[in-house]
Computed example of a mutant assay.
Amino acid sequence: MSGGPGREAPAIVAPGSVPIREAATVALIRDARVGGGVEVFLQHRVATMQFAAGMSVFPGGGVEPRDYHGTRPWRGPGPAWWAERFGIDTDRAAAAVRGVARELFEETGVLLAEPEGASGSGAGVGGLAATAPAGPPGPDERRALDAGEGDLDSLLAAHGLVLAAHLLRPWDRWTTPVGPPRRYDTLFFVAALPAGVDPDGGTTEARATEWIRADDAAQAGILGRLGMLRPTLDVLSDLAGAADVAEVLATPRAIAPGGN
């Protein structure tokens, strides 16, 4: 049946032909203020999003071509280490680490970065010379990055900073099943909230944000009080049993090849 005079009928896309896009997301955690356990930062998405509309999610998004263009060394395990954990190639692993750090900064203002030459775990990786930091990136630079201008490497270089990949941990991998009009192969990371910073609700993709105990969030997801996709609920359920952030970061993870 035609779409009417002067109109074309909408194309019918076979479910199996929907391209699978690369994505990365991060559960940002901190020690619970009362009673032990961990709290996680959740975004409650607006209802107009093309994917996971209205759902409660972790910060993150699509890995973009600009995330593949980075060349600056970071502090922490190299691309080969991440590639082995997630079961992917090194180029994609490097892009995912940059991409998830970029998305976290764009959506929450939390930048996983340290001054070049700073002492600590992995200091001096890649032979980076110590330079005088130019101060943290400002709101205008954050908005520009979110709008697709520039890339994380260039932003960090301009401020004498290096990506602190050692603050991240690989956690899981999920692929959207056949059916939805958008599908993603998503790498899930966990990161402890760096000292002295706090995420905000500055992203237009969320109607609200909150810190919530992982066990309370998992229970709300199970009971339907919070809408969430299965991967989010699964990660929250894993985090719900942890005594504190240190236990989460020390927990070895076996990630299924090819994702769940």
Score class of each variant (00 low, 15 high):
Pro133Ala: 03
Ala118Ser: 10
Gly117Ser: 06
Asp140Leu: 14
Ser121Thr: 15
Val125Cys: 07
Ala118Lys: 10
Ala144Pro: 01
Gly124Asp: 06
Gly135Arg: 08
Arg143His: 14
Val125Phe: 15
Gly138Tyr: 02
Ala134Val: 12
Gly117Trp: 00
Gly117His: 04
Ser119His: 10
Pro115Arg: 00
Pro137His: 11
Ser119Ala: 12
Gly138Asn: 04
Ala134Cys: 09
Pro139Glu: 05
Gly124Ala: 03
Leu145Gln: 00
Ala129Arg: 15
Asp140Ala: 12
Glu114Tyr: 03
Glu141Met: 04
Ala144Tyr: 09
Asp140His: 05
Ala129Phe: 07
Ala144Ser: 14
Ala129Pro: 09
Pro133Gln: 02
Glu141Asp: 09
Arg143Phe: 11
Ser119Val: 09
Gly124Asn: 07
Leu112Val: 04
Gly135Trp: 05
Ala123Pro: 11
Ala144Lys: 08
Gly127Thr: 09
Arg142Leu: 11
Val125Tyr: 15
Glu116Thr: 11
Leu112Ile: 07
Gly126Ala: 02
Gly138Arg: 06
Asp140Asn: 13
Gly138Trp: 02
Pro133Val: 06
Arg142Lys: 10
Ala129Ser: 13
Pro139Met: 07
Gly127Val: 01
Gly126Phe: 12
Gly135Ala: 02
Asp140Arg: 08
Leu145Phe: 00
Pro139Asp: 08
Leu112Tyr: 13
Leu128Ile: 14
Ala118Arg: 04
Arg142Cys: 01
Gly135Cys: 08
Arg143Asp: 03
Ala132Trp: 13
Gly138Ala: 04
Ala113Cys: 06
Glu114Cys: 06
Ser119Ile: 08
Val125Leu: 08
Gly127Cys: 05
Pro136Val: 05
Leu112Pro: 06
Gly127Ser: 01
Glu141Leu: 01
Glu116Asp: 09
Ser121Cys: 10
Pro137Gln: 02
Leu145Arg: 00
Arg142Asn: 07
Gly138Ile: 00
Ala129Glu: 15
Gly126Tyr: 15
Leu145Trp: 03
Asp140Ser: 08
Gly120Arg: 05
Pro133Arg: 05
Asp140Tyr: 14
Pro139Asn: 11
Gly126Ser: 04
Leu112Glu: 03
Ala130His: 11
Ala118Gly: 07
Thr131Gly: 13
Ser119Gly: 11
Ala144His: 09
Leu128Lys: 08
Ala132Lys: 11
Glu114Gln: 05
Arg142Ala: 04
Gly124Ile: 07
Leu128Glu: 15
Pro133Leu: 03
Ala134Trp: 06
Ala134Tyr: 13
Gly127Tyr: 03
Pro137Thr: 00
Gly126Arg: 04
Gly126Trp: 05
Arg142Ile: 07
Leu112Gln: 00
Ala132Val: 14
Ser119Pro: 09
Gly127Asp: 00
Asp140Gln: 12
